[in-house]
């Protein structure tokens, strides 16, 4: 499925899409100040009274000549926004096998990276997963042009699903790099205790990242992939065993449980200004990209 992310026809459909980023791209330059950095752009943004310490280079000399008043000009600076796409590579992304959740997650990551590269924003892909206690955190370099999009392919091809979902640790490692805050897109099935992703999201938001969450689920997983019968279930991430007997009633309860988990995540995202999208089933990829992502404002 990953091959689709590099098909020309598929990419051609993404050319007109723009990543939906709420945060302004301007910063104030020339002064240690919080907030916007006044820069040396070419598009005038605002005027303000001159204050001591302002850079005299931004004084509006024409206004002073006409009005005998000191004004400083600020310009909209074309500033790049770093886009980090975090792909969950834990073991749960590999199940159910026939749903190919991990393939869907990688294609979505690549798709969003391609869209972000369209604005010449620096984009990188990060995967996190690996055996218990050995977090496999893997990140690409920042790429800025679509011509270098193919450089993501080796990383996307090589990463494998394994281990538990160590989302807080991955975010912590991600933030330790102390990059300017940008956009963080987390792609995962979020089939973990809610405390884990809530902690991760809180860290990202605290670092002033614009967070977007994409939940990837398999169609069989969502509908209940197990037929009636007695099973010994083993959690692929924790190794925990549980003996169950699946009946139609139990299968329905499982579906309700999944809906509840999704709803909890959705409510949390809505409450914290996080854009949430759910991609269910690899077969719905095109529909999800073309309709669902724009509807949710993830792309424009």
């Amino acid at each position: 499925m990953l091959a689709r992310a590099f098909e020309p026809a598929f990419l051609q459909r993404l050319d007109n899409l723009v990543l939906g980023i709420k945060r302004a791209r301007t910063v104030r330059l020339g002064r240690r100040a919080l907030g916007r950095v006044q820069g040396s752009g070419i598009e005038l943004e605002n005027f303000k009274d001159y204050c001591e310490g302002d850079d005299l280079r931004f004084l509006d000399w024409n206004a002073m000549a006409r009005l005998d008043t000191l004004y400083t000009k600020s310009y909209r600076v074309e500033r790049e926004t770093e886009v980090s796409i975090l792909i969950d590579a834990s073991a749960s992304m590999g199940l159910p096998v026939r749903d190919d959740k991990f393939g869907l997650a990688r294609v979505l990551g690549a798709t969003l990276a391609y869209v972000a590269l369209g604005e010449n924003d620096p984009v990188r892909l990060i995967s996190f997963g690996g055996p218990r206690g050995q977090l496999a955190y893997r990140a690409t370099e920042f790429l800025r042009r679509r011509e270098s999009y193919a450089s993501f392919k080796p990383m996307l091809t090589e990463i494998k699903c394994a281990g538990p979902t160590e989302m807080p640790h991955a975010v912590e490692q991600f933030l330790n790099q102390r990059r300017p805050p940008g956009v963080a897109i987390v792609i995962s099935d979020f089939l973990v205790p809610s405390s884990l992703y809530k902690t991760a999201f809180s860290h990202l938001l605290a670092a002033r990242y614009e967070v977007k969450a994409i939940q990837v689920l398999g169609s069989r997983e969502a509908a209940g992939s197990l037929g009636p019968g007695a099973y010994r279930l083993r959690d692929c991430e924790t190794g925990e065993l549980r003996e169950v007997t699946i009946t139609p009633t139990v299968a329905e309860a499982c579906r309700r449980r999944l809906d509840n988990l999704r709803e909890e995540l959705q409510l949390h995202c809505a409450g914290h200004g996080i854009t949430y999208a759910a991609a269910v089933g690899a077969q719905n990829l095109d529909d999800f990209i073309v309709r669902e992502l724009p509807r949710l404002g993830l792309v424009r």
């Binding site: 197990l226 279930l233 083993r234 169950v244 009633t249 309860a253 499982c254």
Partner: peptide
Amino acid sequence: TVEVSSLLLFEEAQIAV
């Protein structure tokens, strides 16, 4: 024995064990 993505899905159901 069946490996599942998460046992969270099977928590709420009244499982007949």
